[in-house]
Design a protein around this nucleic acid. Structure first.
Lengths: 223, 223
DNA sequence: CTTTCATTGGAACACTATTCCATAGTTGGA
DNA sequence: TCCAACTATGGAATAGTGTTCCAATGAAAG
């Protein structure tokens, strides 16, 4: 009797998938804060009510969008010479994904335990295992890596959002923050005023890998 | 002529400080999503308009609340036997702060470059310096630690929020996630199904310190 | 054909952040 | 003592949100 979703009412039929795809595009263009059911319905040439037939609510929609992007980024297998190398490549995939879809960074850091996190935990955990980490330490080690990746993701997303909101490109934004730091009281904030210059010229991607290296170094030391 | 803020209209006078304090209490009670100007005004026995005289907007208010909590948590000095020990104590302060004010975790992870982050960067950076890390690597090292702390903070906040929204205590929540993981396809998710049990009984605080240890291990190795 | 029912799209609703504004209270000067 | 200024207040009005409701559609099953 029921052929849920398969029956095509017309060519541009509404599906959960097509809705999520449109949402992803919109999120990429305007960010999480400006994704509304109004503009989403308009873009799909329908009303908000029709969308709610396929999607539970906005959280559900955003979670689905996030999961779709993460799944796509992790779909093709990743192999490196060593487990360390592979872990770095996985991490870079995440980094580049956030670069293209900054909003994923902030959604991801709120999705503890959910499917998108598992999609990252799985390949990373497998490599941690390949590193020869002892059974009881598998979770701690993998979770440390995940937490670090999520931390960087969240901050990159925040940086992208702040830069966009102030109509600045990356360089101008770094300049602004760096200047703010260097103007702090050097007696109270000796370190921050000191690294302000390093911050101005730092490379997110390189620093990200640097952090992964530190954790991997710690792992190799523990054996 | 102007004595901005100092003049006392009446006993329970409205100040930015008193508003932020009330906001913090409300955030602790109901979380970020349910902090509204309606209930906040009611609690301060005033109208929304009066609040806007002292606060720019909701983001400003939440940022101020976050900064106040972070500043309070970091106010008294922290000393350990070694720089490593001190870093761990700083990290634990953050962890315990998030435990009391879960919403700070999610706000923090969006506050890249802002004041709350600097309040953490400063003491951690000082200890990184004390560790003898070379000048050019100061930023990478400190930022790796910060990113990790932010990552854990964000996930703990998410866990707290998800548990609260589903009316579960921590144990039930861990159970639910652990069960969900163990029911994944073991062929596709061998690692996740494998660690599901470890996840059920894991201790957030201990794992958090474990991750810090890994990073510190990596730092000591790099010298 | 007719009936059924998944699906649609737009109007209606409850609620939010934010702005507006008339007014009260305070204060420094005349 | 009074008088302007001007800070500060609180409640009403506004614009825009996520979500629900419901009458209408049209494809399939009988």
């Amino acid at each position: 009797m029921r052929k849920t979703g398969n029956s095509k009412r017309r060519q541009g039929s509404l599906t959960r998938e097509s809705i999520v795809d449109a949402a992803i595009k919109l999120l990429d263009e305007v960010g999480e804060g400006r994704l509304t059911f109004q503009v989403l319905s308009k873009r799909l040439s329908t009303g908000p009510g029709a969308i709610y037939w396929h999607v539970e609510n906005k959280d559900d929609l955003i979670a689905a969008a996030c999961d779709t992007v993460v799944a796509a980024a992790m779909s093709s297998s990743i192999v490196g010479e060593t487990p360390q190398e592979t872990i770095k490549r996985i991490a870079l995939r995440v980094f580049d994904m956030i670069d293209v879809h900054p909003w994923v960074g902030s959604v991801l850091s709120r999705s503890a335990g959910q499917m998108p996190m598992v999609r990252l935990l799985e390949p990373i955990g497998q490599q941690v295992q390949a590193l020869g980490v002892q059974q009881e330490k598998l979770w701690v080690t993998a979770s440390a890596l995940i937490s670090y990746v999520f931390g960087v993701a969240g901050q990159n997303a925040a940086n992208a959002r702040l830069a966009k909101e102030n109509d600045l490109d990356r360089t101008d934004y770094l300049d602004k923050v760096s200047t703010a730091w260097s103007q702090l009281d050097p007696l109270e904030y000796p370190f921050s005023t000191g690294v302000a210059q390093q911050f101005r010229i730092h490379d997110d991607r390189e620093d990200f890998l640097g952090g992964i290296d530190l954790i991997l170094g710690g792992v190799s030391q523990q054996r």
